[in-house]
């Protein structure tokens, strides 16, 4: 059968391969090449070696600012989203009446797109700050915490669902045995439940990490980087460097390569660390 299927390459695989080439493979290779060149139009490039990469860290300080802001934001988001999501999952795993309804409510914001989410919170946050006669662009800290709250509102429900599924796999006889042995509720949580849901924690920290680190739409709609460019995250800084600064296209592409390497590296390290903490149930 393998042989007869092989002849059907053009039907089974070719359309996807063509789309994949256009959307990903060719742009990816071009992107790497362009990061070593200076250009304003893509057809006319000058090879400049590592110059763009050096510029990111010398001439242009917006990238380092964005990197620092994104890192802070990502760390705070990972911790808050996962703690709240896990807490909610524990509350929803007790078989309380109305569990399905609560789950639906908490998950709902996740389906709304980043742009709409950003403007919903823009209204709410500026409404609150308006009482004190300021708005979200007044201070970078406002934008920072605004983004954290928004991200929590969006992602908690999603992670909660994964944690609920994980908690269902914790055998109740193990918990009961721990209880009979005299383990207190916090001990049962930290010594039994949490080690057993480690696979869910791996997945959830990975998902929160990669979506917080790559955040763009919410950033654009909530603060658009204001004040100045103090609240612009990495994805937005790259976008702005491409489309708002003439002559910096090569630098922008170099930033994108660095961004990609960072994302890949963090994902790899994070998966190794949490995977090593998983236990067999």
């Amino acid at each position: 059968m393998q042989k007869s299927l092989k002849k059907y390459f053009a039907i089974f695989a070719l359309p996807t391969v063509i789309a994949f080439m256009i959307a990903f493979v060719i742009p990816f290779i071009m992107g790497i090449y362009l990061s070593f060149t200076e250009f304003t139009v893509i057809t006319n490039t000058d090879f400049v070696g590592l110059e763009n990469y050096i510029k990111i860290f010398t001439v242009d300080d917006s990238f380092m600012n964005a990197l620092w802001f994104t890192t802070k934001f990502t760390i705070v988001s990972i911790v808050t989203v996962n703690v709240f999501a896990f807490g909610l999952a524990l509350m929803l795993s007790r078989g309380i009446k109305g569990t399905n309804l609560f789950r639906s409510v908490f998950f709902m914001p996740n389906l709304i797109g980043g742009i709409v989410l950003g403007y919903i919170w823009n209204l709410l946050i500026n409404g609150v700050l308006g009482i004190f006669d300021v708005d979200i662009t007044y201070k970078a800290a406002y934008g920072f915490w605004g983004l954290v709250v928004l991200t929590n509102w969006q992602m908690i429900g999603y992670m909660m669902i994964i944690y609920v599924a994980g908690l269902q796999n914790v055998p109740s006889d193990v918990l009961e045995a721990a209880n009979i042995d005299g383990a207190s509720a916090p001990q049962r949580l930290f010594k039994v439940t949490i080690p057993m849901v480690m696979p869910s924690i791996t997945i959830c920290t990975f998902l929160t990490l990669s979506s917080s680190f790559k955040l763009f739409d919410q950033n654009l709609a909530l603060t658009a980087g204001a004040p100045g460019m103090e609240t612009s995250m990495l994805a937005m800084d790259i976008y702005n460097t491409f489309y708002l600064r003439m002559g910096f296209e090569g630098v922008a592409q170099a930033k994108a390569v660095v961004f990609f390497v960072l994302v890949a590296l963090i994902a790899y390290i994070q998966l190794r660390i949490t995977r090593s903490k998983e236990v067999e149930s």
Binding site: F20, A23, P27, F28, G31, K214, A235, I238, F242, F260
Partner: peptide, 28 residues
Amino acid sequence: VMYYLFVFSMIVPFQMVMYPMVYIVGQL
């Protein structure tokens, strides 16, 4: 190789391919 390329593409952020992709899409 195809399989690994597909898996690899999952971790690449959009900004990495954005600019050249927009150009190619326009050309085609």
